[in-house]
Amino acid sequence: MEELISTGIARYEYRHFIIFGAASQFAAMATECAGDQGAWWEFHDAYLLKAQARSFTRAGALELARDEGLNVGRFTQCIDNEEHRDRLLQMQQQAIADGIQGTPTFRINGQPGARSLGGIIEQVLAAAEAAENQEGS
């Protein structure tokens, strides 16, 4: 899937869909607060790819913010004041309205995505071809 993105065929958007409660909510909030300082993907990877359990705590998130060289005071203010609460709530409500029921769930140009990676890649390539044909016509 990374190749589809790096070659300009597709772009990828991550949307929070909180199903595991407070810790997940906190991690999403911390990531959005990091995003305010340009470190959204650093936090995304720390949570999702590296599965750093410590980051799901306030202390862990602050440590991560320090490691990433963020303005920790600003970051702390953001998570303590839940500055992205409305954004996360809106994202959750929109996902439910779009029929999202579990994670991970994919949408390819708005259409329901396959359950397997291979299926998703096929869908992306088909959608790219369709877009190209549309441009050509």
Binding site: L4, R11, Y12, Y14, F17, F20, W41, T103, T105
Partner: peptide, 29 residues
């Protein structure tokens, strides 16, 4: 990391002009 060099805007990564948008709904846990 493995996305080095790719353009991004907050939670979206890749060429803004790319014809296909992949959206993933997920929970970090």
């Amino acid at each position: 990391g493995h996305r080095e060099g790719l353009p991004f805007t907050r939670n979206v990564v890749g060429d803004p002009e790319a014809p296909v948008l992949i959206v993933e709904y997920s929970d970090f846990q």
